[in-house]
């Protein structure tokens, strides 16, 4: 039981997404994270640690423990 828990912990990590902590699997890509968020009808812009990551690079961007992810969407404005 203890061993199982240890493996589970070992395989997960925490990232910060829009100021909220979220547990993701180790080796999780940005693409997978955005999939998990859902709302497929939206077009998102994403930055990891304040660097904009273009959509074409989401699948090759691997997240690391403690990464800060910002996900932004379109809204109305003047």
């Amino acid at each position: 039981m203890n061993l199982k828990l240890e493996i589970l912990n070992h395989n997960n990590m925490n990232i910060i997404i829009n100021n909220n902590s979220r547990e993701v699997a180790e080796g999780c890509t940005l693409e997978r994270l955005i999939d998990e968020i859902g709302y497929k009808e939206f077009k998102f812009a994403v930055a990891v640690n304040n660097q904009v990551v273009k959509k074409t690079a989401w699948d090759e961007t691997i997240l690391y423990d403690g990464d800060k992810v910002i996900v932004i969407k379109a809204v109305s404005g003047g």
């Binding site: 968020i37 939206f42 998102f44 996900v71 932004i72 109305s76």
Partner: peptide, 10 residues
Amino acid sequence: VTVAMKRVDL
């Protein structure tokens, strides 16, 4: 038309 952006409320 002007548009804006904001952080996604998850």
